[in-house]
Design a protein around this nucleic acid. Structure first.
Lengths: 205, 205
DNA sequence: AGTGGACCTTGACGACTGTCAAGGACTTCC
DNA sequence: GGAAGTCCTTGACAGTCGTCAAGGTCCACT
């Protein structure tokens, strides 16, 4: 039908747009309170709508949070691929990578504590596990692109499986995040130094 | 008084003993359900007592969980210090360390997912932060003793700040834990290989 | 024997949760 | 202009939560 072809996609777009809008609001609340203490009413209160609307756009709470996690992923990887694309020397890439992590630590601290919270939840609730593993794999590939490119610039092969490299950098970042929230003033600088140090160790002279 | 000197310590002991007993039961439930879904009634149901008794021995829920976290710490470090004490060669220490981590991964998986859960909570709730940081420091020192001893056996100085070494091994372990719960059959073997690989990189030839 | 205190259970409270049905407001189309 | 459908609000539901007070039971001591 002529009308269906015109109306349908528009409706879907508006529907999807609202979902994204609500998920954005939910992410703000979630990153503020954490998974355990975030209620649907609290999410709605930090949005322009009332609590009932959440069940109009999402099947249930798990559906909403799963959608949020997916949305979070999309915004997560963008920063670093630009660094990879623009770097011309290994030193420049290393600096850009370390600075990027530090910037993430400072600017997106709340969002990342939510990520670690949800990843911990995935250890208990199976409903989150698939999405969490998917995001984790995306982050792993991102780290792998950076480390791989760094190796290229220094004419070296990949030093270790990507899962291992990812785990190492993730460990550094997570510790820095904890220290950051604990009020340590050196958390950011320590992170930068350790990221550069780890890169050195992965590609010894 | 003669009676006070005899009765007081006994009462304190019984009181402390019950607290430990209840904390043990709480840890079982917590490691099963995670922080977000564990209620005081559920804890009591998995113990020999009713839910009201928890407020006889603990001020409130935070007091209980804080006590649990402290108790968890004590049991946490024992395994590895024995490994350090008995190892005579660097290869033996490395093997013992890697095997110990793998054993922890398999046997104490539930307990350790609780640890990561609570550490994530500490990023949100300030009431947990002090205890979590304390446990984290204890684990860091444990890793430092292992790596330091390994360096001794190979006549090398410490390769990095203990906080960095701890973060790296913790990253490896946490990834292995996620894979373990996701059902990956190679999680344990991968962890072993990566721990040994990381030790090698920390002390390059 | 009986009294005081430690220990534990029971039941209730107000608050909060996810979920959903009923219905109003508003737009779109015939 | 009225009908249909979209979008959102409101209010209620059945549970569950942490907390606490009232009151038991049991033991030790006088």
């Amino acid at each position: 039908m002529a009308t269906a072809a015109k109306v349908e996609p528009q409706r879907v777009d508006r529907f999807e747009e609202r979902r994204r809008e609500l998920a954005d609001a939910a992410l703000v609340t979630l990153s503020e309170l954490g998974y355990a203490r975030t209620s649907l009413r609290e999410i709605a209160q930090n949005s322009a709508f009332s609590h009932g609307v959440l069940h109009y756009y999402f099947r249930d709470k798990v559906d909403l949070i799963t959608y949020c996690v997916r949305q979070y992923k999309a915004a997560c990887v963008l920063r670093y691929d630009r660094i990879v694309a623009t770097a011309r020397t290994p030193e420049g890439l290393a600096q850009g990578f370390a600075d990027g992590l530090v910037a993430t630590l400072v600017e997106d601290a709340r969002m990342h504590r939510l990520w670690y919270d949800l990843r911990s939840q995935a250890l208990f609730e199976e409903s989150f596990r698939a999405d969490v593993l998917d995001i984790d794999a995306t982050l792993e590939r991102m780290i792998d692109r950076i480390v791989g490119r760094y190796g290229e610039l220094r004419d070296r092969p990949a030093p270790a499986p990507s899962a291992m490299t990812y785990a190492l950098f993730d460990g550094l970042f997570q510790q820095a995040l904890l220290r950051h929230f604990a009020g340590s003033p050196t958390a950011a600088d320590d992170l930068r130094a350790r990221v550069l140090g780890l890169l050195d160790r992965l590609f010894p002279p």
